[in-house]
């Protein structure tokens, strides 16, 4: 049961994370390979505020969102100058630079030793201190995210994000500024990733830089690509596939040491195959080109 709940919580976090990146990749066509950084900012800001300053959980989340949105503006700046491959490359550079800062700024982040003893969330006197209540909390956040995106998809605003993704020049010819839409989508994306990060930090109660490496960013990107982009069910199915794959592998009784690598091998193969034969992913809407 506990193990099952653990998987559920991971799933909730990864669904939020995948949806957050989808905002960039699917809605605005920005293939960013830096999502782990915003996830990490969410986790670290929450940890620092809760451990060092004893701030309540909700306040910590709000501050994480603000900080993450601030850093998202860098991605917006990159997006206003670079496209396609060079945009992706610059986001990778951004990921590595911010990782170096998190790793080296020991007075704030405690560097490689990480931050331990992060309290479990408490909202209005209700403590989410066991697995089942935390799973419930994660579920609420996940559902809120999905509801928000379902609503957002139908707004006139999201149409303009999509037009920016499809053809920037035509958007300019329509008298609208694509930079504005990019900036917005990048900020929403950063905010959602920060929420996932806050949940992660309070769930595991100990974080260190190793959870927010470039490998993690590549992973989040591939979750979105495999599941599909441009809608909600694409990224959700990608997260489901990623989290449930090792559970399926358990049935074929292989030693743990091998299982982790095997999972990633299968995952890499699926990524290569999907992009070749079904570039819109499992359930995506937008065909990434």
């Amino acid at each position: 049961m506990n193990y099952f709940l653990h998987i559920v919580i991971l799933l909730e976090i990864y669904i939020i994370l995948a949806l957050s990146l989808n905002m960039k990749v699917g809605f605005t066509g920005l293939l960013s390979i830096a999502q782990a950084i915003f996830y990490g900012i969410g986790a670290y800001v929450t940890a620092i505020f809760m451990v060092e300053l004893g701030s309540p959980f909700l306040l910590a989340i709000v501050i994480s969102i603000v900080v993450s949105v601030f850093f998202s503006l860098f991605i917006a700046f990159i997006a206003s100058r670079l496209r396609d491959l060079y945009f992706a490359l610059a986001t990778m550079a951004f990921q590595i630079i911010l990782y170096a800062i998190i790793y080296n700024w020991t007075s704030l982040t405690n560097g490689p030793y990480g931050i331990a003893g992060i309290p479990q969330p408490e909202i209005l006197g209700v403590a989410f201190d066991n697995l089942s209540s935390f799973a419930l909390l994660g579920f609420v956040f996940m559902v809120l995210t999905i509801l928000f995106l379902l609503w957002f998809q139908k707004t006139p605003f999201s149409r303009l994000l999509e037009s920016t993704r499809d053809d920037e020049l035509a958007v300019i010819a329509m008298g609208k500024n694509p930079k504005y839409y990019k900036r917005f989508s990048v900020c929403i994306s950063g905010a959602l990733a920060a929420i996932a990060g806050s949940l992660y930090a309070t769930y595991v109660t100990y974080i260190d830089p190793s959870s927010f490496t470039i490998d993690e960013s590549i992973l989040i990107m591939s979750i979105v690509i495999i599941g599909g982009t441009g809608n909600i069910w694409g990224p959700v199915s990608g997260a489901l596939f990623y989290i449930l794959l090792p559970e399926v592998l358990k049935f074929i009784d292989i030693p743990d040491s091998i299982a982790a690598s095997l999972r990633m091998i299968i995952y890499g193969f699926v990524l290569i195959l999907i992009i070749r034969i079904k570039p819109d992913g499992f359930f995506g809407k937008y065909v990434f080109k």
């Binding site: 091998i265 990524l271 070749r276 080109k289």
Partner: peptide, 18 residues
Amino acid sequence: SEIISLITSLGLYIVIVN
């Protein structure tokens, strides 16, 4: 496109390293 080749190459990298 270049970006598809980048994603493919990332996938390949994951496979080889693991």
